[in-house]
Simulated scan of single mutants.
Amino acid sequence: MRVSVPGLPQAVLSANSSSKAISPSEATLRLAEFLGQGRVTVLTGAGVSVDSGIRAYRGNDGRYMNPNYKPIFYHELIDETAKGHSYRQRYWLRSYLGYPPVRDAQPNSTHFALAALQHTSVISNLITQNVDGLHHKALRQAAPYEWGPVRLQEAILELHGTLHTVHCTFGHKVDRASFQEWLSAANPRWKAFADEMERTSTRPRTNPDGDVAVEGLGINYSDYVLPECPSCLAENRYNTIHKPEVVFFGESIPQHVKIRSYRDVEDSDKLLIIGTTLATYSAFRLLKHALELKKPVMLWNVGPTRGDGSSGVVKINMPTGFIIRDVVRAVIGSRVSEDPIIAQMLCSGVVKPPSQDRDG
């Protein structure tokens, strides 16, 4: 089976951006005008979470820009042979160490600004490629009574799943916090190692999918113990094959998610794409679908994307955190000062981009 990591074609990487340089005030005006009329669906990518300390996949410091990086593919993770077991040992050890930084990450100004647009119904649907749950966290923190679990599920579609839930191959689900405890109980030495990293703030480089760079630590995965599924055990079945609710390379997006992503585009008047190169086809096809339906599309991203040069796409080449609060104020107007929840949203958000280090 041949599966590869999606990337941008060299022609896209080499081409000059078709977007003209504009001032922040002009960018703010264009975005406010785009958002201010009609129902808008927003598609976000890893660039939105960079200011929360979570790296983008394909930026200058992105993990997938390293040609030597070899991710684990779906068919490898669920392989029932001894080889598959080794792949899972590698995956879950790295993910065990890498999940806490994602779990503890806080929404940044972009998450809260988009939350304000959702709260005021300017954004009718939000589709995210991110698996970190930070869009949900922003709404829950700012308006917990208005944004319960059901409304969050209706408002946000996680195109590639979430790191915060795990399931076994027989469909038994467990929250990630509990699964982390299972891993800790099965691997006390690695629990001590993780606790020491936490105490000394020496966490290894963490990537958007919770994977960490541990190549320089001399780690041997062979002694990592994979916990068995207790629900399977109750059914007289031994099973240690688990995966997070994340769509892996080589795995298809669930049909109901694909259908809903298309419907979200169809039900809106326009599409705004933020913080993504559109390297994965699951995201790029939503842009194509919007264009086929003759809907206006605006692409807001720093650097080249797969959508650059597409007829009908307007590009804003500027960091979102730089102007997004001004955009929201221009769109919402007086409601910013009249609604304390919105006012709080536009004052909230961390700005803690990851350090620029070498890729391990």
Rank of each mutant, 00 (worst) to 15 (best):
A177Y: 15
W147L: 01
G59C: 08
P6A: 07
N108M: 07
V212N: 00
E251P: 05
P67D: 06
E266S: 15
S311P: 14
S19I: 11
I22L: 08
R335E: 10
T276Q: 05
D339E: 12
P188F: 03
E158T: 05
W92N: 02
E80T: 15
V174F: 11
A11H: 14
V297I: 08
M1F: 12
L8M: 08
R325I: 14
A21H: 15
Q180H: 10
L157A: 08
H135Q: 10
R94Y: 00
G216W: 05
R58A: 06
P353I: 04
N236M: 10
R63E: 13
H164R: 13
E266F: 11
I332P: 02
K258T: 12
D269I: 06
T110R: 03
L299D: 12
R335P: 09
A177T: 15
G312H: 08
T162F: 03
D209P: 02
H289Y: 12
E146W: 12
N16C: 14
K243N: 00
I241G: 00
I273S: 05
I342L: 04
Y64H: 08
S17W: 07
P208D: 04
Q118D: 08
T276Y: 05
T128G: 03
E76L: 09
R94M: 06
K295C: 08
N239K: 04
Y69M: 09
S178N: 11
D79A: 09
H164D: 03
S19Q: 09
Y224K: 00
N301D: 12
S310W: 15
V40P: 00
P101V: 03
N125C: 10
D209I: 03
F179V: 02
T280L: 15
K137C: 07
V40W: 02
H85G: 11
F284C: 07
V313L: 04
A213Q: 11
S201P: 04
C229H: 00
V5E: 07
K294F: 11
P101T: 06
I253C: 12
D132P: 01
S184E: 15
I342S: 02
G303R: 06
P71R: 06
H256P: 01
V302R: 11
F248Q: 00
Y64A: 04
R263S: 12
R285D: 10
P101C: 06
E80K: 15
E228A: 08
Y221N: 01
V257N: 02
S231T: 13
W92Q: 02
P9D: 11
Y262S: 14
R237W: 04
V102Q: 02
K294S: 15
N16V: 15
V350K: 03
H119W: 04
S109F: 07
V174H: 05
R90T: 07
G45L: 02
K173F: 11
Q255H: 15
S184A: 13
S337A: 14
E181V: 13
P304L: 07
T162L: 05
T276H: 04
